[in-house]
Nucleic acid binder design. Structure first.
Lengths: 212, 212, 212, 212
DNA sequence: GATGAATGAGTGTTCATTCAT
DNA sequence: AATGAATGAACACTCATTCAT
């Protein structure tokens, strides 16, 4: 059982390397198998096709990431108090969440980079959009609270747009950190400033009082 | 003279469509030519290769975009006064610049989308990085002024990181607007909020007083 | 009339260059025309096809060469005397002939090199064989005289083989000189030794007395 | 095991045929595969590219040929005695060498013909020159001995030229025999006369006494 | 589990040639 | 006399995938 899987493991390793180097589309199964020292036929014993090989690399990390995001963002939270205290609380929450997400991202650094930057051509090519969507709902809620909206009916298309952007930006922060920092520690440090930037943006957005 | 260029125009049109649909890499010259109703040989009369065909679509818009960016961001500007007034001025400047850039982006909407989202595999695949780099230098300067640094020597690696992020974010705002707004008018409207968000971020970054 | 032919001349010049560089087969008409500054269509006004373009370069020099060879080798000559004096005479004759041929070869150096070394793929690709054949007949006759054969009937297949080789060798000497000497003068000098070698070979062949 | 390699063998056979018929450049992989009854993809399973397919045909015979040449020509030989006896010895040696080389040539007749006459466009297109160079060094040495030169310094450019020619001629003899004789036996017979011719040439060259 | 062999459709590209204008 | 445009067939080569053994 231990030795059994060695080929599969080797295959996955080599595939990861090739996918990172060339991206999903340009990666060649031939080349992966050559590197792994097996024939393409062998690969097809373990994986249905190119897509499934890719999936076997990124699926688990992605699930882990999704779960972490869901754990923090998915449920509705009850904040009480005035706008400012809500904002403070919500953002503090987000900061904790972000730290956890960062942990996952760096735990599976290669796989996440693969997902975020090199998945074009695979079924994961729109994964970023779906991550954005995940936190968008949560952000929209938070936004309503901060704005003091009593009902969702008050949300305008414009509100939605800016909230969508902020969700997108949050994800982008993660990708930026993942791409430009060598380890979680450094990322954690840099994230503080980025978070600071983001919170500044949120507050300005809520107040909408800088440019008229 | 009118009929003369029709084949070339048809070819470019069909190429644009195919590139947008499938991305640079997956686009097939055969398929483009079939759609345009000519043989591949005909295409090679007008264009040296796949790359040049792509270039003929995006080169002019890109140049236009680059020039607009350069016009606003490239020169050093002299601001006088205290931090707050400098910030206000600089950001106002940027807002004007952004409006102009938005104009170019929507004037060549399809081509810019091609460049930003579908150029993987072509020599333009890193175009976003180079746009970021363009404004990064300008942002770094602005940042120093706002921070009250007397010399560039004061800039830390951390400063550079956050400024680089802000440059990246600025470009991302443009891409987001281009991708999600149907026309320039709508984009202009939405941009106000995004700009507001960004400025809030900048100020928070300069003051660095929200999260410690 | 003078300016008229300029395009044709330019075309021939560029073709010569391209054919020499790449050989008949790899030479590209496109590339020739590009170099000449005209379209391929223009070329087809002057020349029926690739073959005729090549021909227009080498035909005249080849004719000149053929004529020179024919003038010296084609007619039967009457030698009187014993074997040795016939040999001496015949070879002297050949030496004169060779000098004349060398003159033609160097007069049209580029064209002849084209013919001898770069015609593969064209209808001239077997030109060397036909040159060999030309002088073979003459050599066979000379050989009979020297051998003291009274009738052609005495010639064996073995005789023919060696005479054919010597004819081939003669042509090879020319090609070698053309290929390795920078001008006629140098070729003339080197030819002396080569001729000496050849004559030594002839005499040994006639006497057949070195290896048994 | 018997049936295993049949496709590869078929492929090589058909390739040999096509290469001989059309030469390296004009040979079409499609046509070879069609003849062999497989798709081009199958060919690419066995051979990296056109070049390697060609190589797989000619490499072994070439190696064999090179080794045979090297075995006879590469080492310096010690001859003692006067010019005439040295000449006799050296030439006898060469005769033996030539017989061995002829053996190899006819053992791999088709492959050698391919190499000598039809390799234009492949990396073997200059193979003849390199064969010439191989024996040139040996010939130069022999020539010095025969001339009675005490040092290599005495060799003139003219000496080199004629020796180079003689080396070239030696190779040409092989090619001539290979091209014009149906089997080794016939070639061996004809070679005697050609060798006789060559030796006559050598002696005349050493003595330099025929034409002044 | 894995190999060796093969497929078939596809890729971008180049070519000599043609012809209306 | 020459252009600009186009053809159509060919090229070497790569790909993901399949399957009998």
């Amino acid at each position: 059982m231990d030795k059994d899987k060695q080929t599969k493991i080797k295959l996955i390793e080599c595939a990861k390397k090739e996918f990172i180097e060339k991206g999903y589309m340009k990666a060649s199964l031939r080349s992966i198998c050559r590197e792994a020292g097996v024939t393409t036929g062998a690969m097809y014993f373990f994986f249905k096709d190119k897509e499934e090989l890719f999936e076997s690399i990124v699926a688990a990390p992605l699930m882990s990431l999704m779960n972490t995001i869901r754990a923090h963002f998915d449920q509705e939270k009850d904040f009480i108090g005035d706008v400012n205290s809500i904002t403070a609380l919500a953002l503090k929450d987000d900061y904790v969440a972000a730290s956890d997400i960062l942990s996952v991202l760096f735990k599976y650094k290669e796989e996440c980079l693969l997902l975020m930057n090199r998945a074009q051509g695979s079924k994961y090519e729109k994964i970023i959009d779906s991550l954005v969507e995940q936190i968008y709902e949560h952000y929209l809620l938070m936004y309503c609270r901060m704005k003091g909206y009593s009902s969702k009916k008050n949300i305008t298309a414009e509100d939605k747009f800016i909230v969508h952007w902020m969700a997108h930006d949050q994800i982008d922060i993660f990708i930026h950190l993942l791409t430009h920092c060598k380890d979680e520690k450094e990322a954690g440090r840099q994230m503080k400033n980025m978070f600071n930037y983001m919170v500044g943006g949120w507050i300005a957005t809520i107040r909408k009082d800088i440019i008229k």
